[in-house]
Nucleic acid binder design. Structure first.
Lengths: 196, 196
DNA sequence: TGCTTCACTAAACCTAGGTTAATTACCCTC
DNA sequence: GAGGGTAATTAACCTAGGTTTAGTGAAGCA
């Protein structure tokens, strides 16, 4: 897989988010990106450590997860290629990451230094609007999740999850789904049993 | 309170968010804003209805709240002047609001049509960056809240709330705090009793 | 072939928080 | 100052989901 093709995907991705940049214009930017490969289980960023990087997933699936002081795992979200990935908080505020991003299968991605990326991109016409659009979407998703945690039962959250993420169904374990919807694997097993 | 002073606050607010616009530049924009007054209990936007407006709170406190199909209230958040207010989802996606915004005391605010506001502002140097910054902050807050709901007990969430919102403490009822941290007023009363 | 590890399930028991209902304490307004 | 609302508290009881422990089956490995 050539870098050229990856950049095409990247541009495509942003185009879908209403960013109009022609690819020649974009090429010089490509030089700043590293093409990386992560094996299943490896971490792209690590909880408690600086995470100044932005990733563009070309292939594979990742999971955002953190471990509480008491040792409980929580899965904030999943992301599958093609998509942008990284910790907004850690990148933009220059603080340590509150979660890790871990590869759920073999992952190929482009890696950018956020500060450099943002400095270069913010002058590109349309970039800031595309980034706004992205942030709005991210915010709206979190809002929906907040609502689900407070107003819905675990069973409802599980059904919603299945409904919205059919492509993940066979890729991730019950344990991960459970920690994403905020219950224990045992509780999810009970729910499954009840549903069938 | 003159409109002029309100615009000053508004500019000030954005300046704090790294937007540099000189006030003369801004004046022509001011003509598009309506200065509004809401009595305690009135709604700025209403759940289930279009909410294309952006508000700049000049005075007062509001609460974002929704009622579930089963009739349970949930308080998404509070906002006190000076700050921007509105439903990101409803404004930017042109859909009905999922929550209401209700005045908790007498509220004075500037009211903008989001579409017009955004169209005019997006060409102002610095505005898109300021808006990005705002969205990032909003997202990070929701992330923290998501984490709290999953990893913390109701008691911990209550203590965090008190800690972070000392200015709200005497302005809002126990019922509202309870519905904000995701429990019933009765449960919160028990927690208070246990704590004292 | 056995040994280990990990994913999932199942049963028994526990607890945080929900639900219902009663009680007090306030404000209102008439 | 008598009624009617609403806010907060308390107690009794209930339930969703957590915890502990045990068991099964598949995957990896010596």
């Amino acid at each position: 897989m050539s870098l050229q093709i990856d950049m095409e995907n990247f541009i495509q991705y942003f185009s879908g988010n209403k960013l109009s940049i022609d690819s020649t214009n974009f090429e010089k930017f490509g030089l700043k990106a590293k093409l990386k490969h992560y094996q299943k289980g490896q971490q792209l960023i690590t909880q408690g450590q600086p995470a100044p990087k932005l990733f563009f997933l070309v292939k594979g699936i990742v999971r955002y997860m953190s471990v509480s002081p008491e040792g409980k795992e929580f899965t904030q979200s999943f992301a599958s290629a093609p998509s942008l990935s990284g910790s907004t908080r850690a990148m933009t505020r220059n603080v340590d990451a509150l979660f890790s991003i871990e590869a759920l299968d073999d992952v190929i991605c482009l890696e950018f230094e956020w500060q450099v990326f943002f400095e270069q991109m913010k002058s590109q016409p349309g970039f800031l609007s595309a980034y706004n659009r992205l942030l709005e979407n991210m915010f709206i998703k979190k809002e929906e999740r907040e609502y689900a945690f407070v107003q819905q039962s675990a069973e409802q959250r599980y059904l919603t999850f299945l409904d919205r993420n059919p492509q993940l169904r066979d890729k991730i374990s019950l344990k991960m789904i459970a920690s994403h919807i905020g219950i224990t694997p045992i509780a999810l097993s009970r729910i499954r049993n009840k549903l069938k």
